[in-house]
Amino acid sequence: MSLDTFVQLFRPPWAWREFLFQTWFVARVSLAPTLMLAIPFTVLTVFTLNILLFEIGAADLSGAGAAIGAVTQIGPVVTVLVIAGAGATAMCADLGARTIREELDALRVLGINPIQALVVPRVAAATLVALMLTSLVTMVGVIGSFLFSVYFQHVTPGAFAAGLTLLVGTPEVIVNLIKAAIFGLTASLIACYKGISVGGGPQGVGNAVNETVVYTFLALFVINVIATAVGVKVTA
């Protein structure tokens, strides 16, 4: 299915309307969880890091720590959690419901490839939304770190801003975006496969959604570790 999806991704006709609808759908179910996860992750990370920096007399470097945390870890991890827990499950449930109602068989009878009509738009939409989500999480992380450090832990605003680019530059941001795109692509492929291969009626749809969460979490955390290690080697 994944190979067929990649082939159909570059073959017309493209389902633009379905792509736009799925982009809005995935963004709608993922936006609120993203914001609610990004803020506590940021506060916890920055609070712990700043305690260490204060102890060694390096509070002026809190901006550098916040930037590298938000760009390299908080952004990708929150994206993993949201894409796996919200976006992929909603996608799997939608396709699973269509499968048990035999809509996919009806499309095949009409000569329409379900992969091209349903899977490709969802994969492309999830990849795009993952890119947008990690950008949003990174911005929320940096801004939240600044507010928490300056107003609660009394770090100098100028020193915080000056330290943002000490350890993080364009290569780290590019690696972050590539990781997010891989996360969205992987999660959507797993969700679509489980959705179109579901069986056993409504209970089968529920089981497929649960399996999607587990498989997506496992796959994305492994990818995150590998991509982080490769990114560190590339940007070193």
Rank of each mutant, 00 (worst) to 15 (best):
Leu166Phe: 04
Ile39Val: 14
Leu220Ile: 04
Ala93Gln: 03
Ser188Leu: 14
Gln153Phe: 10
Thr134Cys: 15
Gly87Met: 12
Phe217Val: 06
Ser135Asn: 05
Thr89Val: 15
Thr228Pro: 02
Leu104His: 11
Leu133Asp: 06
Ile174Pro: 01
Asn210Arg: 05
Ile182Asp: 04
Leu220Pro: 00
Glu18Arg: 09
Gly141Trp: 05
Met91Lys: 03
Thr170Phe: 12
Gly206Gln: 04
Val7Asp: 06
Ala86Met: 09
Gly206Leu: 04
Ala208Met: 03
Ala227Glu: 01
Arg17Val: 11
Thr134Trp: 11
Leu104Met: 14
Gly201Lys: 05
Gly69Arg: 09
Ser135Trp: 06
Asp105Ile: 08
Val175Met: 11
Ala67Asn: 01
Thr127Glu: 05
Gly87Lys: 08
Glu55Lys: 11
Arg108Ala: 13
Ala162Met: 12
Ala130Thr: 11
Leu185Glu: 04
Glu18Phe: 00
Val26Met: 09
Met36His: 02
Ser62Trp: 02
Phe221His: 00
Phe41Gln: 08
Ala130Val: 11
Phe221Trp: 08
Thr72Asp: 12
Thr89Pro: 00
Ser145Phe: 04
Ile190Gln: 05
Ile74Asn: 07
Ala64Arg: 11
Glu18His: 07
Gly169Ser: 10
Thr72Val: 14
Thr156Tyr: 13
Val80Glu: 03
Ala161Tyr: 02
Asp60Ser: 12
Val168Tyr: 00
Gly195Lys: 02
Leu128Thr: 13
Leu147Ile: 15
Tyr151Glu: 13
Val225Tyr: 14
Val43Trp: 10
Gly65Asp: 09
Ala67Phe: 06
Gln73Asn: 09
Met132Cys: 14
Pro114Arg: 07
Leu136Ala: 12
His154Met: 11
Ala130Glu: 11
Ile182Gln: 03
Leu136Asn: 02
Tyr193Glu: 13
Tyr215His: 06
Asn210Met: 03
Val82Ser: 02
Thr45Gly: 14
Ala86Gln: 13
Ile68Val: 15
Ile68Asn: 08
Val119Gly: 01
Ala180Gln: 07
Ile39Gly: 01
Met36Asn: 03
Lys233Gln: 15
Gly57Arg: 04
Ser197Thr: 15
Val168Glu: 05
Leu185His: 06
Gly96Gln: 09
Ala58Met: 12
Thr5Cys: 12
Val137Gln: 04
Ser197Asp: 11
Val109Ser: 09
Leu95Val: 04
Pro114Ala: 05
Ala125Arg: 07
Phe21Ile: 09
Ala66Asp: 06
Leu133Lys: 01
Ala38Asp: 02
Thr170Trp: 13
Ile74Ala: 06
Leu44Ala: 15
Leu110Ala: 11
Pro76Leu: 14
Ala161Met: 12
Val119Phe: 02
Pro13Asp: 10
Leu185Ile: 10
Ile74Gln: 08
Thr216Met: 08
Pro13Phe: 03
Gly169Leu: 07
Glu18Ala: 15
Val78Glu: 11
Val205Trp: 01
Tyr193Leu: 09
